[in-house]
């Protein structure tokens, strides 16, 4: 399984860790540091990434706004989107789901759980 991932997070540390983990799993990773940047990077990728991973709390455009913006672009309507968050409560999941999220990963993420979540949305 070789996947292309777009990871969106305003924390440089988390971006670095995602990049390292995904690279070690043999995946190609593209990075963005907020929702607005995420949309820009996404629209520059052809073919589109297999999965998008996004943080929630970000400047300019947060994760909820980013997911809604992605889902409003026809060609990305069903692309898997995983929410990366430090909160694991039902409220957060409900809001993420309502915005159009496919699933979630709780930070700090264990590499195995991250890869498992990717498998759950890509087979």
């Amino acid at each position: 399984m070789s996947l292309t991932i777009l990871a969106v997070d305003d924390s440089r540390t988390i971006r670095d860790m995602l990049s390292l983990t995904l690279k070690q799993a043999g995946f190609t990773t593209h990075l963005a540091d907020d929702g607005v940047h995420g949309i820009e990077v996404l629209e520059g990728l052809s073919p589109p990434p297999d999965v998008i991973i996004t943080d929630i709390n970000m400047p300019r455009m947060d994760g909820f706004g980013f997911i809604e913006a992605v889902r409003n672009i026809e060609k990305y309507r069903t692309i898997p989107i995983l929410v990366l968050t430090t909160e694991s409560g039902a409220d957060l999941k409900q809001r993420a789901r309502y915005a159009g999220a496919t699933g979630w990963i709780v930070k700090p993420f264990e590499p195995k759980k991250l890869i498992r979540a990717l498998q759950m949305v890509t087979g």
Binding site: T78, I79, R97, G100, A101, Q119, M120, V121, T122
Partner: peptide, 8 residues
Amino acid sequence: VSGNEPLH
């Protein structure tokens, strides 16, 4: 619609 897929 959420991006999930039974086959996976």
